[in-house]
């Protein structure tokens, strides 16, 4: 079954002719249609889009939780047929095992691989040390703050040495300050490990600040509306977020997403709502924008 593509380097994600539909009583509903994306080895790519556009669906298909209705997802030429430790995933809800200590959580992937206890304990300690969490190895996740939980989540996903790291709005539940620190930590880890990252977010600043490239998706049924390279130099500093280059990128992405968000809401808006919106659109009616 597995279709081999010429490129066999480490962590090359390829999504081609992808569509995914859910079966409902009224017939199939398209969540994502006609989508092509790719992530080169070692690249940091984000997907942004209005809520409900199917960006998480796309990510879950790359993870192997969802099967595409049409098209194909490959990593290094190997077809994705189900979840695997080769594709580490970080979830918005942290999803740490509450019955395992911080260290046991990090050890989990190594344990599944059959690594002996003493060896994986040592490995987990080293990783926790890199993330500044060594003092909390014996704590249960419940006792940690959100930012610490997500740091453990990232370390756990990286512990098995996956080819790619998939993140589904990982910092969505964190406060603004913690989020900035987490972005820095993620960038550091990514640069050290030279791993490919596919990052889903609705936060435009976050996408620009972190990524080499950003895909912007259309409203449901989602497809790729635009692909924006982010030429900002690395290492990136917080101060860059005020640069004219950053702000120009931000404006561009913002207007793309605004358009799509209005489209997504269009179906639900009644006449009264339309009138309200037309004021906000500086004279353009909703129909014009669409």
């Amino acid at each position: 079954m597995s279709e081999v593509i010429a490129n066999t380097s480490k962590g090359h994600i390829e999504v081609r002719n992808f569509s995914l539909a859910y079966e409902t009583i009224e017939g199939p509903v398209q969540a994502v249609t006609d989508t092509q994306i790719h992530v080169k080895p070692g690249e940091f790519v984000s997907i942004v889009g209005p809520s409900g556009c199917g960006k998480s669906t796309l990510l879950n298909a790359v993870a192997g939780f969802l099967k595409p209705t049409t098209g194909i997802v490959t990593v290094d030429g190997e077809r994705v047929n189900g979840p695997s430790a080769e594709r580490g995933m970080v979830f918005q809800q942290y999803s740490l095992f509450p019955w395992k200590t911080v260290r046991e959580n990090v050890e989990f992937g190594l344990k599944m691989r059959g690594m002996p206890r003493s060896q994986r304990e040592r490995a987990a300690r080293t990783l926790l040390g890199l993330a500044g969490l060594e003092a909390f190895e014996k704590h249960y996740p419940e006792k940690l703050s959100g930012g610490m939980k997500q740091r453990v989540g990232i370390v756990r996903a990286l512990a098995t040495g996956p080819k790619v790291l998939l993140l589904d709005e990982p910092f969505g539940a964190l406060d603004a300050q913690t989020r900035v620190i987490m972005q820095q930590i993620l960038t550091n880890m990514w640069q050290r490990l030279k791993i490919s990252v596919l990052f889903v977010t609705h936060d435009i600043d976050e996408a620009i600040f972190l990524s080499d490239r950003v895909y912007c998706m259309t409203a449901r049924p989602g497809s790729i509306k635009a692909e924006i390279p982010i030429p900002l130099e690395r290492p990136r500093q917080q101060s860059m977020m005020m640069s004219s280059e950053f702000l120009a990128l931000r404006r561009g992405l913002m207007s793309l997403i605004r358009e799509e968000s209005l489209k997504a809401m269009g179906g639900e808006i009644n006449d009264m709502g339309m009138q309200g919106l037309s004021i906000e659109l500086h004279g353009h009616s909703l129909a014009d924008v669409i």
């Binding site: 939780f65 695997s84 430790a85 594709r87 740490l96 095992f97 989990f108 599944m112 098995t160």
Partner: peptide, 19 residues
């Protein structure tokens, strides 16, 4: 989500049941 997290870390049916 915890089941998914375990699957992503390489857990198979038996391990998911136990862990």
């Amino acid at each position: 989500v915890l089941v998914r997290a375990a699957q992503c870390l390489g857990a198979r049916e038996r391990s998911i049941f136990r862990e």
